[in-house]
Amino acid sequence: MLLCAFPPPSGAQTTYLWKDPESGAALTCDRCAPGTYLRSHCTATQRSVCDACPPGSFTELWNYIEACLPCSACGVNQEVSARCTAHRDTACRCVAGHYYVSEYEMCLPHSTCPCGSGVVSEGSLTSDTSCQPCPWGSFSERVSALDRCTAHSSCAARGQQLVLAGAAWHDSVCANCTDARERDAAGCLRGILPGFFIHQNIPVIQLQRLLSSLPQPDPSPRWEVMGRKELHLHLNAWVLRADVGDLLQLKKTLRRAGSAKAARKLQKKLDHIQKKLNALCVEDKKEE
């Protein structure tokens, strides 16, 4: 049993009016301190009687309620930042990768910046990711909540020549002019293909068809149960291990998958690289 002798903070209301049911007299009773609840009201001869809140419950204010409040549970995408005590409710915060939106009273995932845009400021527990389109001379080839735009590579610094100027979604493509065969042009595409698949925003069903048509070890994964992000990871892995012959067949495979527009875009890139290689090689031969 506890009496209300807990020192109150300045300005706290520590009494309440109560009508004695036996005498009908109006009494001024003591409230119970935070961490306690009212077990019995005061009488003409006895002060209010308070008890400590049992485990799993609390009161934060001076009160005269007859039961403590149950401790709250954290919501979806939240975790406990401070456990519930007798005088304080559970404190929650958003889990990593999420931020709190007071309008909805819930934690939402940080937004990702699309391919061709980079992160200006990363999301926090209270704010979303901020993105901006990559400025001229820089690129971002991934969908990410962390990656900033990266400067295009300098071909001259590598001792190579530019065969495809960088764009907002891919790096510059550099090459040495050893010969101008179509196989070399296809090999130059390897570095921009991961960004190409994302930038073209190919529908999931077409990505699934594309992967099922590419050379794969048996047994093949179940593409039909995978989402866009996982499908892109498998495509990127294929690009790394594909030989130049497989890359040359990619535009045909895209058409079979129903992505004729992406196939045309890929052919356009390939033709541009091929034309640039041909021109560079002719110049090299003249200098010889």
Rank of each mutant, 00 (worst) to 15 (best):
199 H>D: 11
241 R>M: 13
237 A>Q: 15
71 C>T: 07
284 D>F: 10
68 C>W: 07
283 E>H: 11
181 R>H: 12
281 C>L: 14
62 W>R: 13
196 F>G: 01
192 I>F: 01
282 V>D: 00
210 L>P: 02
272 H>I: 10
79 E>A: 03
143 V>W: 09
21 P>M: 05
54 P>K: 09
105 E>I: 14
178 T>D: 09
260 A>L: 10
117 S>H: 08
93 R>N: 03
66 E>C: 03
286 K>W: 06
136 W>T: 08
267 Q>W: 07
42 C>E: 05
182 E>G: 10
12 A>L: 02
193 L>W: 02
275 K>P: 02
103 E>Q: 15
228 R>C: 00
254 L>G: 00
251 K>M: 13
138 S>Y: 04
50 C>W: 08
55 P>K: 02
288 E>T: 12
39 R>Q: 11
251 K>P: 04
244 V>I: 15
17 L>R: 09
104 Y>T: 14
258 G>H: 12
164 L>H: 03
131 C>N: 04
49 V>D: 13
186 A>Q: 09
10 S>A: 07
104 Y>Q: 14
99 Y>M: 02
109 P>F: 04
16 Y>S: 02
263 A>Y: 07
25 A>Y: 01
284 D>T: 12
20 D>R: 13
192 I>Y: 00
59 T>N: 02
191 G>T: 08
126 T>A: 10
28 T>R: 12
101 V>Y: 05
166 G>A: 05
106 M>I: 06
106 M>H: 12
277 L>H: 04
47 R>Y: 06
262 A>W: 05
161 Q>V: 08
211 L>W: 11
17 L>E: 01
44 A>R: 06
85 T>Y: 04
42 C>W: 02
214 L>E: 03
199 H>P: 03
171 D>S: 00
142 R>N: 00
253 T>Q: 14
98 H>M: 09
251 K>A: 14
181 R>T: 13
117 S>L: 01
123 G>S: 09
165 A>P: 02
50 C>L: 09
251 K>E: 13
61 L>D: 15
234 H>I: 05
129 T>K: 05
60 E>M: 12
274 Q>K: 11
156 A>V: 14
9 P>Q: 09
5 A>P: 10
75 G>R: 05
58 F>N: 01
128 D>C: 05
84 C>S: 07
39 R>H: 11
242 A>P: 11
224 E>W: 12
254 L>M: 15
288 E>C: 14
108 L>M: 09
211 L>Y: 08
45 T>K: 10
155 C>A: 03
166 G>V: 01
229 K>A: 15
210 L>N: 01
172 S>T: 12
222 R>V: 15
143 V>H: 05
105 E>R: 15
66 E>K: 00
1 M>D: 06
80 V>Q: 02
112 T>A: 12
56 G>N: 06
1 M>Q: 06
278 N>V: 14
204 V>I: 10
202 I>Y: 08
162 L>S: 12
252 K>M: 14
218 D>L: 15
21 P>N: 05
167 A>T: 12
116 G>S: 08
124 S>N: 10
234 H>A: 14
234 H>Q: 13
260 A>E: 15
74 C>W: 03
91 A>C: 07
141 E>Y: 00
121 S>G: 08
179 D>C: 10
246 D>R: 12
44 A>N: 05
